[in-house]
Simulated assay, not measured.
Amino acid sequence: MESATNKVVLSGFAGADAEVKNVGSQKLAKVRIAINESYRNSSGEDIKKVQWFNLIFWNAKADIAEAQIKKGTGLTIEGKLQNSSYDGKDGSKRYHFEIVVIDVVIRENEKQNAF
């Protein structure tokens, strides 16, 4: 059987300051990252689109996120995709995806104020 790989690499901008809390004896930071995309559709129009992804930082990486990630901070991350499920109010199964950050590069000289 072949081994599988779960690897995500994203480069974008933090949508807000890192949200930090303690979970038991561990520190957790959450950040939403905006990925700006643009393309030309079949009619020749330039289309701009923003996609948002939820990032999770644990422990020492959460310390880095708390100290250095503010709204608009440029980030390049490597991580792994993780999902969970829950039952919605209507009884249907819902899924939530987030990226657990393994490595982060903070692009300090690169800021974006508007998404």
Results as ranks from 00 to 15, higher is better:
Ala16Arg: 13
Ala29Arg: 09
Val50Phe: 08
Gln82Ser: 11
Gly72Asn: 01
Ser43Asn: 12
Lys70Val: 06
Arg94Trp: 03
Gly88Asn: 03
Ala18Asp: 09
Asp17Met: 13
Asn54His: 06
His96Asn: 15
Val31Tyr: 06
Ala18Trp: 09
Val104Pro: 07
Phe53Pro: 02
Asp17Tyr: 14
Ile33Asn: 05
Lys49Ser: 11
Ser85Cys: 07
Ala62Gly: 05
Lys111Met: 15
Gly15Asp: 04
Arg32Gly: 13
Asp46Phe: 07
Thr5Leu: 11
Ala18Lys: 06
Trp52Ala: 00
Ala114Thr: 15
Asn54Ala: 04
Ile102Arg: 15
Ile69Glu: 04
Phe57His: 02
Gln51His: 13
Ala60Glu: 09
Ile106Cys: 10
Glu45Val: 00
Phe115His: 11
Asp87Phe: 08
Lys70Cys: 08
Ile99Met: 02
Lys27Tyr: 06
Ile69Gly: 03
Thr73Arg: 02
Phe97Lys: 12
Asn41Ile: 02
Asn36Pro: 08
Ala18Gln: 07
Ser85Gly: 08
Lys61Trp: 04
Asn6His: 07
Glu45His: 00
Lys30Asp: 12
Glu37Pro: 05
Glu98Ile: 10
Gly15Glu: 04
Ser11Leu: 15
Lys48Pro: 00
Met1Trp: 07
His96Lys: 15
Phe97Cys: 12
Ile77Leu: 07
Thr76Ile: 11
Lys70Asp: 03
Ile33Thr: 06
Lys7Leu: 11
Ala4Asn: 10
Ala16Trp: 05
Lys89Ile: 09
Lys71Ser: 10
Arg40His: 05
Asn41Ala: 01
Thr76Ser: 13
Arg32Trp: 06
Val105Ala: 15
Gly72Phe: 01
Ile99Asp: 01
Gly72Ala: 02
Ala114Tyr: 14
Val23Asp: 07
Ser25Val: 09
Lys30Thr: 15
Gly91Tyr: 01
Tyr95Trp: 08
Thr73Ser: 07
Leu75His: 00
Ser38His: 06
Met1Val: 13
Lys80Ala: 04
Gly72Val: 00
Leu75Trp: 02
Thr76Lys: 11
Lys48Arg: 06
Glu66Asp: 05
Ile102Tyr: 11
Ala62Lys: 01
Asn59His: 04
Val20Ser: 12
Ser85Asp: 06
Gly12Met: 04
Arg40Phe: 03
Leu28Arg: 10
Gly72Ile: 00
Gly44Val: 01
Gly74Leu: 03
Glu2His: 11
Val50Met: 07
Ala18Asn: 09
Asn6Trp: 08
Arg107Met: 09
Met1Ser: 14
Gln68Arg: 08
Asn109Lys: 10
Gln26Met: 11
Gln68Val: 01
Ala60Met: 05
Thr76His: 07
Lys21Ser: 14
Asn113Val: 12
Ser85His: 03
Lys21His: 13
Lys111Arg: 15
Ile106Val: 12
Ala16Leu: 09
Asn113Glu: 14
Ile77Tyr: 05
Asn22Gly: 12
Glu78Pro: 04
Ile56Trp: 00
Ser42Pro: 01
Gly79Lys: 00
Ser25Pro: 05
Asp103Ala: 04
